[in-house]
Design a protein around this nucleic acid. Structure first.
Lengths: 199, 199
DNA sequence: TTAATTCTGTACAGGTCGTCCCAGAAAGGT
DNA sequence: ACCTTTCTGGGACGACCTGTACAGAATTAA
């Protein structure tokens, strides 16, 4: 009883995510959004809403996708807690190198959001969105480390939540270095040094 | 033989640095620059030039100031190499906490520049500016670590330049966490975990 | 075929931004 | 006091941006 859209919503959202990821919120105009998603202005506004809303939805999609991979590693059967942390760091390195090679955007959209928009009251919602996601990630990481301490795989003298913060900070450092153009060997070196502090 | 300016150039530059630091390149308009520096548009353009030039000069001033503190730590007499690295990390934590308390901008302008402007060919010069500074910092850090290895203070099995990359990445992680609003205890935890990997 | 509903292209209003220009004010040297 | 040089305030201009409105095209169900 009505016309059907001439595009795939999820596919369009993927393009929008990559656009914001690479050029930031203020670095992309609404026309840029239309171009990368191959959408007219009307379709964009009817489907998603204003620029703020589009960004928030892109951030949600990005965080959901990242969480999937994150939880896949932490929930992997047959892996010790140490190996899970190692897989997390090495997975980050591998992901970044692959993205560099494929010409996909590098770095982390969550970090980019924090850097660009933190301190701007008008965009507090998306900053809170990132911080909530980070807290959840840290909690999951800390319980993983505590489990490893309970079974003796990880030094029980360490503060689990502090170590979770450290691992997260290292991942951030790797992603920023990658965005700066650092090579795969550099990223690998960072991850290897970080892992040494567990033993 | 001519009129004298009614403002202090360096003081104005300091205000401009803080403005860009807090709100980013695209997040500050030229009128914002005039307001924070208490300058008219003419004075701004006559003294510094276009927005790009102002940003580049702000970045230079920021990097020079950061380098001063960095080299002061690395060149401190009577400190072992390990203590120098520790002072570097703990100094970063202390600096960020103090800035949070004083309402000064948090995070790192160099990191912000990378995140916001990397991948935009029009701003490649400032990105290169940051990368050159980073390389110099990494080299100084690596030689410091090598010195510590030569005297036996630091595990000689470590790859010095890899460890330098790691320490730098950790500092980046601390600064990003601080910009995200993390408390002093969190930042301290990150630094402490990073230091553990030296022993 | 027809009617209802949704999608799409284009144009427009209101605002902001970056840059330049020009006249006048202020200060230093003579 | 006067002239030269520089600084300063304000405005102008073109370009861009965001969000909306509207008319026409397209598609589905009856």
């Amino acid at each position: 009883m009505a016309r059907t859209p001439g595009f795939d919503r999820d596919q369009a959202l993927g393009s929008l995510v990559r656009q914001f990821w690479r050029h930031g919120y203020r670095g992309t105009s609404t026309e840029d959004l239309c171009t990368t998603a191959a959408l007219g202005r009307s379709s964009l506004y009817n489907t998603f809403g204003t620029k703020d809303v589009v960004y928030s939805e892109c951030l949600s999609a990005y965080l959901a996708d990242a969480s999937t991979g994150f939880e896949a590693v932490l929930g992997a059967p047959g892996l010790s807690a140490f190996d899970k942390v190692a897989a997390l760091l090495e997975g980050t390195v591998e992901q970044e190198s692959r993205r560099q090679a494929d010409g996909e955007p590098t770095g982390c959209l969550a970090v980019n959001t924090l850097v660009e928009l933190a301190g701007d009251p008008a965009h507090a919602p998306v900053v809170d969105q990132v911080n909530r996601d980070t807290r959840a990630r840290l909690a999951a990481l800390a319980t993983c480390i505590r489990l490893g301490q309970a079974t003796g795989e990880i030094n029980a003298a360490l503060d689990a939540s502090a170590y979770a913060e450290f691992v997260n900070a290292t991942i951030v450092g790797i992603r920023v270095a990658s965005r700066g153009g650092a090579g795969a060997d550099t990223l690998r070196a960072i991850a290897a040094c970080a892992l040494r502090s567990l033993a």
